[in-house]
Design a protein around this nucleic acid. Sequence first.
RNA 1: GGCGGCGUAGCCAAGUGGCCUAAGGCGACGGUUUGCAAAACCGUUAUUCCCCGGUUCGAAUCCGGGCGCCGCCUCCA
Length: 490
Amino acid sequence: MALQLYNSLTRRKEEFRPLEEGRVGIYVCGPTVYGHAHLGHAKSYVSFDVLVRYLRYLGYRVTYVQNITDVGHLTDDADEGEDKIAKAAAKERVHPMALAELYTRSFFEDMDRLCCVRPDISPRASGHVIEQIELVRTLVEKGYAYEVNGSVYFDVARFKAYGKLSGRNIEEMVAGARIEPSPEKRNPVDFALWKRAEPNHIMQWPSPWGMGYPGWHLECSVMAMKYLGRTIDIHGGGLENQFPHHECEIAQSEAANDAPFVRFWLHNNMVTVDGQKMGKSLNNFITLKQASAGKHERLTKAYEPLAIRQLILQSHYRSPLDFSDAALHAADSGYQRIAEAVTGLRRQLKVASEGPTDQDVAGQLDALKAKFEEAMNDDLNTSVALSVLFDLVRLTNTLAGSATRETLGAVDDLFTRLGGDVLGIVKSEYAEAAGGNDEAVGKLVGILIEQRAAARKNKDFAAADAARKRLDEAGIVLEDTPQGTQWRWK
RNA sequence: GGCGGCGUAGCCAAGUGGCCUAAGGCGACGGUUUGCAAAACCGUUAUUCCCCGGUUCGAAUCCGGGCGCCGCCUCCA
């Protein structure tokens, strides 16, 4: 079975075929950089990271574009609100671009830790103002937009397909509107393409309509078409952006180009924390930096970024995901189980003797690979794909000590391809004695292990157990294995 | 008020008409192993999928009603 993806536009799973044979262009709505990335960002970007990785695994040449919003995203209704970045910058008394730069770096750092592959292109909205003005000009010329007092609005009534993605119609929206219609708009559902800037507004550019700045929806249309063409294969983003953001993108792009904007719309579901929507006012807003430092009152410990990735991959990208300390803890244990199996496998691989690959194992590996691909082909069922990794863990842990280098190598290869290349949960290298790559500590623990070994040899188990207990109190766990005593941080 | 989604074991979660007397992970319990542990392995842990009706030879899966939870409709990944 070929790859099937759920297309929000048609509301069903469809076989994915790119416009151009062998190549895929994918655009994912990136962050507005006015704060550190949080668990919601993690779910969205890990989900699309796996999509990109899997497409590459399937042999596609993928161009992955993910924007950085550093201007134009308003805090409020698309007409009256302040620019989020300008607001945060004023509060911290720094230049808006300095603030954007700070959080852009923070974002990349957090995504790297989650093992998300970097996008091929990370375009900034502020670097594409010229193109945005061009698009607005085109829309005005074609009669889809109108200017009022230096601001330009999209005339939604002119675009008949408006609402096709989110399943809404204009009349209902007008009737149910909770916001005060702007006096400048012809229609309450019209949205801003270009906003007039007051003189004290820092981020502003000259345009045919005077000094101003671009509306938020515009940047994605412009950058997607600039780097991927007028019709792109896949556009991804969070479900909450389906309306109005993506609906507006479609309207602008298709009105300007007279061509379909996106073939496959993919939306990931939302994150809750302890069953509630994550929000700053609810005190359940958790950033990735807080999670990996364990510094949040909802968390009992520091969690490795990959434990967060594991939790995300355990559920489906279109299902909501509830973060809780218990859920993270469980995911962390599962993640460690995989890591330990791979570490042990590689340790064994170094000393194994050569010989033919065990055909029974090879057969099992083929079956697991097929099961994995079948799951991923079904709209990226990472939950089942991850279960294949656990099957592989069990297989690894039951391999006889006599397994050949070739057999072990074949298992390691599958771990690397499925767990590493596609899911991004298996590392290419693990620090020796997990987390203990501090040489001095390693040597000291080594000395204590030797002394304990001597005690054990003399059947002085009281001394041996005391040594183990004291190390345990210091946060170091000793494990006696057939390959000798191993240690790791608790 | 309008639109949409969800409700599966102690917890997380896949499955969406027969392969389900329901994956996988965490946890718990029993066993093997170990000087004792740890880890690992083996086994047990939902005859049942929120409730009530209906359709069907057959439903966790489809339909109707109810209850509960969540999201979008204003910025949010």
